[in-house]
Structures are given as C-alpha cells and as structure tokens.
C-alpha cells in the first residue's frame, strides 16, 4: 500500500480553528491513501455526510482503516483533494437553475485541470459522485470551452458524437440485443421475400 502521509497541499494552520483541526484518511480504489482536512471535506457533500455519520474522533482516524472510495482511482482523487484543500472554507454555490450558467475558471483550477481529456473525464465523474458543486461547475465549463469557435462538424469530432444514422443504428442494435427473436423474425422475413413469397403469415 502506498501511503501519502503529508496533506495534499500545505495547510494554513492559523486559519483553521483548533476544534476543526482534524484530518481524515481516504483510500482510492488503487490503494492510495490521502489525508484531507475536515474543512476541505466540507466541499464534498457526499464525504461530509459520510464523516458526520461515522462520528470519528482523532484517535479513530489514526486507528481505524482509511475510508475507502472504491470507484475513484488515486490520480483522480489526488486532483479532487488538491482542489478541496485549495478551496476549503469557501461558500458552496447554490444552483439557481439559470441557463446559460456563467462560470469563470480561476487560475488555480485552470492549472489543476491542465490534464488530458481522459483524466478530465474521470475528474468530472468524481466531482459528480462526491457532489463537489463548484469543482463540477468548473470542470463542466472546461469541457464546454472545447466547443469555442467550433462548427457542428468539428464539435461532432471533438465530443465524439454520433450522427442521426449512427444513433438509429445503435438504437436498433440495442433493441435487437434485448429481443433476439425480433432479429430472427426479420431474417426469416427477408428470406421469404427473396424466395418470392408475398405473405409472411
């Protein structure tokens, strides 16, 4: 097991009240361990509820096994916790449902998300799973920015979007996969047509 003993980012000790000075240990699905401050955890609704429900003391944190986050790998989780530590104590934005949603990407976040699209994809999934509202907003905005200056044809390539024909073919395939008999019936029908039969029934 590889353990990262130090916090992901330096903590400003003076800024944290004494009673809040507590760290939790989390473990990714590839067994990487992270120590994250309680204040940083508050950025994640999912983790915040989890640690509240567990009611760990400082001793428990050290003595009990790290909390496992089974569907996020270490590389992604590292980015998530870096983001949380940097933005700890910040208010969590409330979504007013407006469209278009105006989101600015701060410099730190832009640098943090200077990653390949595969990792960005995982980061978004993680932000969604852990319910980190603002991380989800900025990462979604990063994806939205890929559309800047792109025509529909270019967008289709960037976002790997299927055309109408491909969508229909996929839908048909899914239907057939659900009901193998439908395909058999269709093939039988085509065969009869070739043989000159004018009625299937």
């Amino acid at each position: 097991m590889s353990v990262e003993n130090a916090p992901v980012v330096d903590v400003d000790e003076a800024a944290i009240p004494v009673e809040k000075k507590m760290y939790y240990r989390f473990e990714s699905n590839d067994k990487k361990e992270f120590r994250v401050s309680e204040l940083a955890i508050q950025q994640s609704e999912t983790l915040n509820r989890l640690v509240e429900a567990m009611g760990y003391t400082s001793e428990d944190v050290e003595n009990k096994p790290a909390i496992a986050i089974e569907n996020i790998d270490g590389k992604t989780l590292k980015l998530v916790f870096q983001w949380c530590e940097h933005h700890k104590g910040e208010a969590i934005p409330v979504d007013d449902g407006s469209v278009p949603k105006i989101v600015e990407i701060p410099e730190f976040d832009a640098k943090l998300m200077d990653i390949d699209n595969g990792l960005l994809f995982k980061l978004i999934w993680a932000a969604d799973y852990l319910n980190i509202v603002q991380l989800l907003n900025v990462s979604c905005k990063k994806v939205a920015n890929m559309a800047q200056g792109k025509t529909p044809a270019q967008l289709r390539r960037v976002y790997l979007l299927p055309s109408d024909e491909e969508d229909e073919a996929a839908k048909r395939a899914a239907q057939e996969a659900q009901d193998p008999r439908a395909r058999e019936v269709e093939e039988e029908f085509e065969e009869r047509k070739r043989q000159g039969g004018n009625s299937f029934f």
């Binding site: 699209n117 994809f121 999934w125 994806v143 390539r157 960037v158 976002y159 790997l160 299927p162």
Partner: peptide, 11 residues
Amino acid sequence: QVDRFRLRCLP
C-alpha cells in the same frame, strides 16, 4: 491531433 472528449458518456 484533436483531443477528444466522450461527452455522451457523462451522466
């Protein structure tokens, strides 16, 4: 090389 993103695979 165009960097691609699997948009439709997102929730």
